[in-house]
Design a protein around this nucleic acid. Structure first.
Lengths: 288, 288
DNA sequence: ACAAAAGTGTTCCAAGTACACCCATGT
DNA sequence: ACATGGGTGTACTTGGAACACTTTTGT
């Protein structure tokens, strides 16, 4: 397909004249974890968790960060992310998707580093290496909306608290969403940061994406075991949407996405519940 | 905020040991253009157009590409994109958003080049430099769906024809969407390419994003003049969604997004129509 | 008169919302 | 018995889909 002119050009091509940025891939790994209750009647409480690793080197030595690596020149971006989580933390089964590319010049104190952000969802219970799972608690501190006839400004302050057995990391970000006529700008500022770099922003971005995708995809099943009860499924929705759902309505809404199996959990102190599996064809049920 | 240890580290830090990729920003610029009809009764026909520039140098010399540039180390990514369109083509008013980062190792024959893809929407009528507007015609050639109890495979072949007065560029891509249990893969292959690099993929990605965003944002008004008729607005929706809409339903649906003004167009051969403007506060009408 | 577009009204159906209510289980 | 969760039914509301119909304009 290449002309001789092109072949010649490429053989002589040198790209050393351009100053190049460094590029990392950074993956926000989520799971949903069940915490046993001490009340025999009550169901275990579920928590959304994120996997963080402690940095061993400068900069941000001893701070926690999401899992990432500098990219090499051989591998495709997705594959670099996959290799990274395999080698660094030993995770193998997950859903992967690219989120956004972060390019603030000052986001890394060393030099210009772009970060291609990823979100990973797993239901795996395997022990992972080189890091810890942190409970994710997102709290909307306050929201200020002002509007005129040209548009509006929404200023949100959000706390993202990350907690494990012995550590609690508190982060606060401010999201400024301004609309002036057609110009729409969304900016994000970190006002309290107990993570490395701007990783709390990447986590926030991942939380928003996850929440939005619940509505129109079946992405949530990546966070659940193969077999689950409808109450478990509902709890997962509630965790991510951060709102309470009504049982009857919820069952109707997700009924096409799941199929009952002939198994029941061994509940204690209350009626047993039927187990369900995800039906991957639900989007196609309308087609013939 | 930095410790002395960190300061020392940074002063000694050298990043030369890593092989770095090149990075470009590439912007798909869309507008909607009205083509006058020769029938005095008929409204002008609207076309979605994309702005392409002809490459002057190898590789892909004399091929058309979207507007882009290698990034420098100083500017934020969005700003690099903005500077690029300002300097290269002279465009100043538009909506900008990041789409996706393309990282196929073979996408550039010179060396490893990542591309951060952007979509730009404009309603500007100004003459732009160094390129031409091409009509965008996306035609779904065929779709093959196979499914089993584990999931499905959707194979779509899509032609994207780009046409201006004296040139017609035909491109064909194949989108393979496979779902196997929870694993979902979406891959895109170019089977006929009359553009530079993988830019037809970036354009396809932009078309999809634009279509999806119509549903839940007011992004479309970036493609329209300040004052417009509801029929014009409907035509723009139909162009991007590639489907016919019913008039009465459409008017009800978008009624909250627009406000009538006390002006009427000077229609010929048919009833005059009222002009409307975009109401940027429609998302907030529910709040108090 | 008539072709093209502007604009309104109505019926039907699907899906979301908010409740009320009954069932099953282990201590 | 009772607390906890599992599960169903129903009445109301909202919004989309399909269609019929009227109005206005320049030639």
């Amino acid at each position: 397909m290449q002309t001789t002119e092109e072949k010649e050009f490429l053989s002589l091509y040198s790209d050393s004249k351009y100053e190049k940025p460094s590029v990392t891939v950074d993956g926000v790994i989520f799971r949903i974890f069940s915490k046993q209750s001490n009340n025999y009647r009550k169901l275990p409480q579920k928590k959304l968790q994120v996997f963080l690793t402690k940095r061993q080197y400068l900069p941000f030595k001893n701070k926690y960060s999401v899992v990432g690596t500098f990219i090499d020149l051989k591998h495709e971006l997705n594959n670099t992310m996959k290799l990274c989580v395999k080698n660094k933390v030993g995770l193998n089964n997950y859903h992967l998707e690219q989120l956004f590319t972060f390019g603030e010049p000052a986001r890394d104190p060393r030099t210009r580093v772009l970060s291609v952000g990823y979100m990973l969802l797993t239901n795996s219970e395997e022990k992972l290496d080189n890091g810890k799972w942190f409970d994710v608690d997102l709290i909307e501190l306050n929201t200020k909306t002002t509007s005129n006839q040209n548009g509006y400004t929404i200023l949100k302050r959000v706390a993202i608290n990350l907690t494990c057995e012995d550590e609690k990391l508190e982060n606060i970000i401010e999201i400024n969403n301004t609309k002036n006529g057609l110009e729409e700008t969304k900016s994000l500022e970190i006002t309290k940061n107990e993570l490395a770099f701007d990783h709390i922003s990447i986590i926030y971005y991942a939380l928003e994406r996850l929440k939005n995708k619940l509505e129109y995809t079946d992405i949530i099943f990546n966070l659940l075991p193969k077999e689950f009860t409808l109450t478990e499924l509902k709890q997962c929705y509630e965790l991510i949407l951060r709102e309470h759902l009504l049982d009857a309505n919820f069952r109707r809404k997700i009924s096409k996405m799941v199929s009952p199996i002939n198994k029941f959990d061994d509940a204690k102190g209350h009626r047993t519940s039927q187990l369900f599996i995800h039906n991957p064809n639900w989007l196609n049920v309308n087609l013939d």
